[in-house]
Design a protein around this nucleic acid. Structure first.
Length: 179
DNA sequence: GCCAACGTTGGC
DNA sequence: GCCAACGTTGGC
């Protein structure tokens, strides 16, 4: 029998996942929850070490499932400012680490602690994202609502979901609005 | 700060 | 597995 051969070249670039698009909501204004400030804006992401941050604290199953099962390194993210004076898309980011357990759920002292989650059987997951761009001006929710091309967006049709899918055409349309 | 919409919990 | 009660999201 000939030795089993495996092409490293193929492994490196033949089966890459196609880029997917997401929208992630963060609150740019200070708000204290169980003693910590949950504020996180596009500037805060930019100012992180390596302009990269874990997306911890998501405690919703649908959003969790997206991060755990769907998001891939290289996927593109619309960074959305919510629960603030001018809600809207503030910039873009890229997924740099795919789903892994959200350790803030294991820490009794942490506001995101969940006794039902443990390192052996994690309930909550997160990804890491890296800052890519800050729009010159926030593309407001109001603006988004005015475009027929965006009326099927999960953000518009449904709202209330902190990590959600975006169609490629929607992503590109919003990048155009940002110019 | 209000409150509608909707996700989650838990008794039955 | 239903569904009432409760909690959270998030625009306004």
């Amino acid at each position: 029998m000939p030795p089993l051969r495996r092409s490293t070249r193929l492994q490196h670039h033949s089966y890459a996942n196609p880029v997917q698009y997401w929208l992630m909501k963060a609150e740019p204004d200070s708000r204290i929850v169980k003693g910590i400030d949950v504020k996180f804006s596009i500037d805060d992401l930019c100012n992180m070490k390596g302009s990269t941050s874990p997306w911890d604290g998501v405690r919703n199953f649908e959003a969790r499932n997206i991060m755990r099962d769907k998001m891939n390194v290289g996927d593109k993210v619309l960074f959305y400012h919510s629960n603030c004076k001018t809600p809207g898309v503030a910039g873009t980011a890229v997924v740099v680490r795919s789903g892994y357990p959200d350790h803030t759920a294991f820490d009794k002292a942490h506001p995101y602690y969940d006794p039902k989650s443990s390192p052996d059987s994690p309930k909550w997951y997160m990804v890491d994202i890296k800052f890519e761009s800050k729009f010159p001006k926030v593309v407001t929710l109001n603006q988004l609502k005015q475009h027929e091309d965006l009326k099927e967006m999960v953000l518009i049709k449904r709202g209330r979901l902190s990590v959600q899918p975006v169609r490629k055409n929607e992503y590109e349309f919003i990048l155009d609005l940002a110019k």
